[in-house]
Computed example of a mutant assay.
Amino acid sequence: MQQRPLGRTGRSISAIGLGTWQLGADWGVVDESDARQVLAASVDGGVTLFDTADVYGDGRSETLIGGFLADRPGHGITVATKMGRRMAQEPENYTPENFRAWTDRSRANLRVDTLDLVQLHCPPTEVIEADATYDALDALVADGTIAAYGVSVETCAQALAAIARPNVTNVQIIVNPFRLKPLDEVLPAAADAGVAIFARVPLASGLLSGKYTAATTFAENDHRTYNRHGEAFDRGETFSGVDYDTGLAAVADLTAALPEGVSLPAASLAWVASRPGVTSVIPGARNVRQASSNAAAAALLEPGAFDIDAFDAAVHAVYDRHLRADIHPLW
């Protein structure tokens, strides 16, 4: 597994990490034993980045990770958590006092004195652009509550605003074959600034697994059931904002472009990880098979393992044919 610099922190993280929303909520039930097996399989596959949030299962994801890592002293894992969605996402709620309360709760959940990396969790644009936001975050770094901070964003404009801030370590943004706009300006700007990019939703909520059909259904408490049109949170978080049937057509075309023996999810993860400026890709996993397969996709980054340039051409052709008109003007 390739290890890459985490911005200016001096840490290195794996090219493919693990997103742990699935271990908290909104994807159906994952019991504690299965969750720990997912974490273990990821570590065994070379993963050194866990991405979580204080609202994933109201702290369940953080707590599971904290317990798992407590049993592995010297684990070498960087845990990136997120804060800011425990209250209404209104600018007046992003105060130093709330930052302190949120990070103290995450420290307790993760069983650490200093959080490795805290990201604002898709806050309003006004918060991303405010000097006071970064003053409060710098204060948490200064007193040892957090080691570094970043911002998770919905739009490219928000990403560029965060990248311009001198102490931002990383920006987390959706990048996948269905979401190409960040390649235009965000990734080059991040690379120039020395800011790490975490590519989230890399498999478009599972659409790019290639296993879904028009007849596929999801659990009632799965966001792929209840948030297809943005009923609960930003529509772009579910299937990357792509119409489900349109996504299935795009998946069919991408699958047809692959060589024998290379799966669409592995190709998609390797493609995202290979984009200049991307530091780590953070797919989620609900079971050991998914976790192991995600980590194994890093092998396609090795020279001669996979013609990523040919797949890149297919990605752009499919995007232009099926998605650009509806997706590119948004986010």
Rank of each mutant, 00 (worst) to 15 (best):
P202C: 05
D253A: 12
N221W: 01
A204S: 15
G236M: 13
A215W: 06
A193L: 07
L203M: 01
L258I: 07
V195I: 14
Y226I: 04
E231V: 11
N221A: 00
A214D: 15
A190D: 13
G194W: 13
D234C: 09
N221H: 01
A250P: 08
R200G: 02
Y244P: 02
A199T: 06
L207Q: 07
P259G: 05
F233C: 06
T213L: 07
L248A: 10
A215Y: 09
K211S: 10
A250K: 02
E260S: 06
V251C: 12
T217S: 09
L248S: 11
A193V: 03
T255L: 05
P202S: 03
H223R: 03
V242C: 06
L258V: 07
A214S: 15
H223N: 07
E220T: 07
A232L: 04
D245I: 04
F239D: 10
T216K: 06
A191L: 11
E260H: 07
D192L: 08
D222G: 01
T225N: 06
N221Q: 01
E237F: 14
R228H: 14
R224M: 10
F218N: 04
A257M: 03
A190K: 11
D243Y: 12
S205Q: 12
N227L: 11
G241D: 15
A257H: 08
R228C: 13
Y244V: 03
H229T: 15
A219N: 04
S205M: 08
A249G: 01
A256R: 06
F239W: 14
G194Q: 10
E231F: 14
G210R: 01
D192G: 04
L203K: 00
A199S: 09
Y212H: 12
L208F: 11
A232H: 11
L208S: 08
D253L: 07
L203D: 05
Y244T: 02
A250R: 01
D192W: 01
G236D: 13
D222L: 03
K211G: 10
V242R: 04
T238I: 13
A257R: 03
T225F: 09
V251Y: 14
H223C: 05
A215I: 00
G206C: 02
A191W: 03
S205Y: 12
A196N: 11
K211H: 11
A191E: 14
T213W: 10
G194R: 08
Y212R: 05
G194Y: 12
G210T: 02
A252I: 02
A219Q: 00
F233Q: 02
R235I: 14
E231D: 15
A189E: 12
S209K: 08
N221K: 04
L203E: 07
A190M: 12
A257N: 06
R224S: 10
T213H: 09
T217N: 03
D192S: 12
Y212T: 02
V242I: 07
D222M: 05
E220A: 09
A232D: 04
